[in-house]
């Protein structure tokens, strides 16, 4: 399989009042096309920073990033990004927000009717098109944001805690939706999360990031069949993966 994302010796430090602060790295990693990769680590370890560097929205302080064989030097529009904070605009409906992504990319929303419909269907949001964001529950907002991030059908998807800020039941639900969407189109997904369970349930591979400054020192390949629904959580292998990852973070002193 082709390598979609290549990270070579990438680190990022920010200038602060107390001098430079290393937010991430240095780290190397290769992500293959069609993989579902999770970046797992405690908050503040630089997960978002890494994702923003992948998107070309933050410049690495050192190292190089390649995406689809071309170096990342400026914001990349050949990907889909779901940001940690909501990018639903309050002045547009759910449908309007999804169309905003297309309009900004110079595409005609009329040509995407079917895709919008099937996307809304796949996250159980049918009939919610006309709602304004503030009329939606947190879970529905997250679903709408997911549709907004996916509608232009990017082959590479960067998701920053797409299921953060949700209650356990809603999380479970949207995890299923997200997994179905991935299995359907097989884009390359890089998902940031701080939930061990979520990472193991969703991913083909989990990168464990150590606390500040974040470094990738462990990679866990999750070898279990898809789809992985609720039942997978009783699987002894699943439980073993959880225990292994747990002990790594325990070793860092964050658990």
């Amino acid at each position: 399989m082709n390598t979609t994302i290549q990270i070579q010796g990438v680190s990022k430090s920010f200038e602060t009042d107390e001098g430079p602060l290393v937010a991430f790295g240095p780290a190397d990693l290769d992500i293959k096309q069609g993989e579902f990769v999770s970046l797992l680590g405690p908050s503040g370890c630089g997960k978002s920073t890494l994702l923003m560097m992948l998107a070309g929205l933050e410049e690495p302080s050192s190292g190089k990033i390649f995406l689809n064989q071309t170096p990342v030097q400026s914001p990349r529009n050949d990907i889909g990004v779901m940001f940690q904070e909501s990018t639903l605009v309050p002045w547009r409906t759910v449908l309007g927000n999804i169309e905003l992504q297309l309009e900004l990319r110079g595409k005609r929303p009329e040509n995407f009717r079917e895709q919008i419909d099937s996307l809304l269907n796949s996250v159980s949001m049918k009939g919610m098109e006309k709602r304004m964001p503030h009329e939606l529950s947190g879970g529905m907002q997250q679903r709408a944001a997911l549709c907004q991030a996916l509608i232009h059908q990017p082959q590479t998807l960067l998701l920053d805690e797409p299921l953060g800020k949700l209650d356990a039941m809603t999380r479970e639900n949207i995890r299923g939706d997200l997994q179905r969407l991935w299995l359907d189109k097989k884009p390359t997904v890089v998902m940031v999360t701080h939930s061990i369970e979520e990472a193991v349930q969703m991913s083909t591979r989990v990168y464990l990031i150590s606390p500040r400054p974040g470094k990738i020192d462990k990679v866990v390949d999750i070898e279990m069949d898809y789809p992985r629904n609720l039942a997978v959580k009783q699987n002894p292998r699943f439980i073993q993966y959880l225990a292994d990852i747990h002990s790594v973070f325990h070793g860092y002193g964050v658990l």
């Binding site: 923003m52 998107a55 070309g56 929205l57 914001p75 990349r76 529009n77 990907i79 990004v81 940001f83 940690q84 904070e85 909501s86 990018t87 605009v89 905003l100 992504q101 309009e103 900004l104 990319r105 110079g106």
Partner: peptide, 22 residues
């Protein structure tokens, strides 16, 4: 907001379009 700014940038839209729509 930083998110909306970044969201607009990643679409590759022109500054004028971002100004009008966002």
């Amino acid at each position: 907001s930083q998110e909306l700014d970044r969201f607009s940038q990643i679409t590759g839209a022109s500054q004028i379009k971002i100004f009008l729509k966002i």
